[in-house]
Design a protein around this nucleic acid. Sequence first.
DNA 1: GGTTTCAAGTTAGCGTCGCTCACTTAAGTT
DNA 2: AACTTAAGTGAGCGACGCTAACTTGAAACC
Lengths: 233, 233
Amino acid sequence: MAKKTPTPPPASPSAPSGKPNGGGFGCPFARRRNRYHHGDLAQALIAAVRVLVERDGAEKLSISEACRMAGVSTAAPYKHFKDRPAILRALCREGFRDLGQAMRTAVASVPAPGPGRLAALGKAYFAFAQANPGVFRVMFGMKREIGDPEDTETHEVAHDTMTIVIGEAAAAIGESPPGEESKGLACVLWTFVHGVATLHLDGDYEAAEIEVDTDGMIDLAAHRLIPADRKRP
Amino acid sequence: MAKKTPTPPPASPSAPSGKPNGGGFGCPFARRRNRYHHGDLAQALIAAVRVLVERDGAEKLSISEACRMAGVSTAAPYKHFKDRPAILRALCREGFRDLGQAMRTAVASVPAPGPGRLAALGKAYFAFAQANPGVFRVMFGMKREIGDPEDTETHEVAHDTMTIVIGEAAAAIGESPPGEESKGLACVLWTFVHGVATLHLDGDYEAAEIEVDTDGMIDLAAHRLIPADRKRP
DNA sequence: GGTTTCAAGTTAGCGTCGCTCACTTAAGTT
DNA sequence: AACTTAAGTGAGCGACGCTAACTTGAAACC
C-alpha cells in the first residue's frame, strides 16, 4: 500500500524555480529548503491558518495568505483539502482536541467533584476561548458555514468534549449513571460559560460599558445553578 | 476631450439601457421604473442586505448581490456609505432599534417587575435572535470586523438596549436608583440568555445532541440568579 | 539500476468580490 | 437658460477561492 513519505532523506539539492520557496527560512510553516515536495503541507497549512485566524479573525482568513506562509502556490491546498471549509474543519478538530485536553486537566486539578470542579471546568473553557479566540470562533460560531453532515470525525471530537461536562455535572449532583438531570445541568452551565466567552471575545461587554468579573460570574453560576436539593459541598 | 461613448442617449424616455434596472419590478428594493435616480438607495440597500444576511448568513453577504437586488451598479453604494462595514453598521443600528422595541413591549406585557418580567425580557431577546439570526449576528458577533470607535450613534443605540435590562434588574431587586448590584444581575442574565441564543443559532446544541427547552432555561435563570435575600415574588 | 507510477507540486486562468476613477445624468438654484 | 452638485454609470484594479492541464521527483517494480 501507499506509504505516506515520512521525512525522506535529503538527497538531491538541485535548485528548482526558487520562487515560491522564497519566504520561509526560520518559519515553521515553510517548505524545507530547495525541496519540491513539502513534507507535510496539510499540517503546515493548518498551522498557518491557525496563526492567521488568531491574528486577523476567523472571517478575514485568506487561504492564499496561508499558502504564502507555507511557501507554496495557491493551488496546492486543494491536493489535501476539498475546499476552504474543509481546511477550517481540520482546524476545528484540532481545537476540540486542545479544549478537551484543557478541560480534563482542569478537572484533575480539583480533588473532589462538586461546584468547585464545575467552576474550574468553566474557567478552563473560558481560558481556552481567551487564549484562542480565532479557533474558538471557528469551533462554535461557523458551524453553519463550514459544517458538513458527512464529517463524523469532527462531530465526534466535539461530542466528546460535551461528555466531560455531563460527567462532571452528574458527579456534582450524585447522579449515576448520568441522566436527564445531569444533562440539563451541564447544558445550563455550558450555556452560561459560553455566554461569558462570546460576549467577552466579541467585545460586547466593552460596548455596553460593563466591567465584568468573569471568574466571579462563573463561580456564581456553578454554585447557584445546581438544584438546591442536590447540592453537596 | 475624448468622450467615452457611454450608452448613447436614449432620446426617448422609454427603455433606457435596460440592464441595471432589470431585476426589480415587484421588488421593493428596486429603483422606480425608468428613473435614473433611485429615490432612497441607502435604505433600499440596507433592506436588501438584511434579506441576504438572513438568507445566506452574515459572513457570505455580497454587497454586489444587494446592488443587483436594488437594480443599481456595484459602484453606487459608495455614494452613500464609506465601505462595506459602514453598510453593516447601518443594519446593526436598525437591529438595535428593533430589539429595543421588542424588549420594551415584553416589559409592558408583564404587570409587575420581578423575575417574571426578567424572564419575559430574556425571551424577547431570544425570540429576536431566532427571528433575525443574520441581523443578530451582525449586531453582536461582528463588532471586531465592522466596529468603528467614531460611530457613536451605533454605540448609543446599543447602550440604550442594555439600559432596559439594568432598569428591570433594579426593579426586580428593589434597588433604586440602579447601582452595582443591578448591573451585576443584568449582566449575568444577559450573559445567560445570550449564551442560549448563540448556541442555538450556531447549531451547537444540535451538534452536541442536546435537546434544549430554551424557555424553561430562561425561566430558571431569571428565578435562580437573583440573590436570595433580594428576591421578591 | 533503469523504468514506471502517481502523489504532490506548478502556472494559467475563470468568475466574483470590494472599491476607485473619471465620467454622465438630472434635479434644484439663481 | 446657465450653473452647481448629489447620485448615478462603466471600466478597471488587485485579491480571493478554485479548476484544469502540466511537471516534478520519490517510491515501487521488474
